[in-house]
């Protein structure tokens, strides 16, 4: 029962969803300020969701209906589970909940997989095009991301998230060494791609392939995808905080500090997104498998030498 509470109310589904809505507003507000606009009111992302829920649902003809309908909620459930695991590692690092670092990495891949399979089911050529870019993007950032995560795992000699956070509580933040700092930069770029934000939004590319993978989704289906994105906007930066900037968040003060760190990472992400143009998919692959992987390999080597 307690696990269900963790998952559904706090810090899982409901709390992560709410924080995700806030983070989305934060993103839009900062973007607006960067562009000298005023920006939306605080609850605008929530209004968008409610509005979407009321819109009509149109199903594409010749689609694989069940796959089209079921996979969006699979992605939603997985992103909620991933974020609960990460949150609980901060709150109760000694206990451990459901999975370790590898489980989180795999679970955070599930929303992308759900989007890909669901859009394949929509029988739209543009959706196939967008989804194929999404797969290639997944392939490209996965390699450097594993390497960046390994830097921390080597130092802490643990693959449990709670263990990593304990290690940082005793030995200082993961980012506080040469290797850790490099790995953080690499992981930040990967998380940018995982979130599908500019410059890595070629899977959606509104101006080119009309939202690509999302093209056939309307009404409640699109709302669920939107909510999944909000949750991932919590899970991915929070995972970075856990790997590189972790602290035990037992009391209210520590929890507030955690939220501030999280918002700082989101701020970095938003700034990257506002200062770069979109890359082509082959450029992104070359970027991730070339310089970024090299950088990550350097970080791992430094970590092996204890730097």
């Amino acid at each position: 029962m307690k696990d269900l509470f963790y998952y559904l109310i706090f810090p899982g589904f409901l709390f992560t969803g709410a924080l995700g809505i806030f983070a989305s507003w934060f993103d839009r507000k900062i973007t607006a300020r960067v562009q000298w606009r005023k920006g939306p009111p605080l609850l605008q992302p929530l209004y968008d969701l409610i509005k979407l829920l009321g819109k009509e649902l149109i199903l594409p003809a010749n689609s694989s209906l069940w796959t089209f309908l079921v996979f969006p909620i699979v992605g939603l459930a997985a992103s909620a589970l991933a974020s609960s695991i990460i949150w609980l590692a901060f709150l109760f690092p000694e206990k451990g909940f459901v999975g370790d670092v590898f489980v989180v990495i795999y679970l955070m891949g599930l929303p992308a997989i759900s989007l890909i399979v669901a859009s394949f089911a929509s029988a739209n050529p543009l959706a196939s095009q967008g989804a194929s870019r999404e797969i290639k993007l997944l392939l490209s950032y996965e390699l450097p991301f594993i390497l960046a995560a390994l830097v921390v795992l080597i130092k802490a000699q643990s693959i449990k998230l709670g263990g990593l956070i304990f290690y940082q509580a005793v030995n200082g933040l993961g980012i506080g060494s040469f290797s850790g700092a490099i790995a953080f930069i690499v992981a930040l770029l990967c998380s940018q791609a995982k979130l599908g934000l500019v410059p890595f939004d070629m899977a959606e590319a509104e101006t080119e392939i009309m939202a690509g993978a999302y093209i056939e989704f309307s009404g409640p289906l699109l709302a669920v995808f939107r909510l999944t994105k909000f949750m991932m906007l919590v899970a991915a930066p929070l995972f970075l905080v856990g790997l590189f900037l972790g602290n035990v968040a037992a009391g209210p003060g520590a929890f507030l500090l955690l939220i501030l760190k999280y918002l700082a990472v989101v701020l970095l992400t938003v700034l990257i997104r506002n200062t770069n143009p979109r890359l082509r998919i082959d450029q992104a692959m070359k970027f991730f498998w070339g310089p970024v992987t090299l950088l990550a390999a350097v970080a791992v080597t430094l970590a092996l030498f204890g730097k």
């Binding site: 696990d3 589904f13 309908l69 909620i73 939603l76 459930a77 909620a80 589970l81 409640p220 669920v224």
Partner: peptide, 13 residues
């Protein structure tokens, strides 16, 4: 938990 999450998603639908 994944199953419960999917039920919650169904509720949103």
């Amino acid at each position: 938990l994944l199953f419960v999450g999917m039920l919650a998603g169904l509720l949103i639908y």
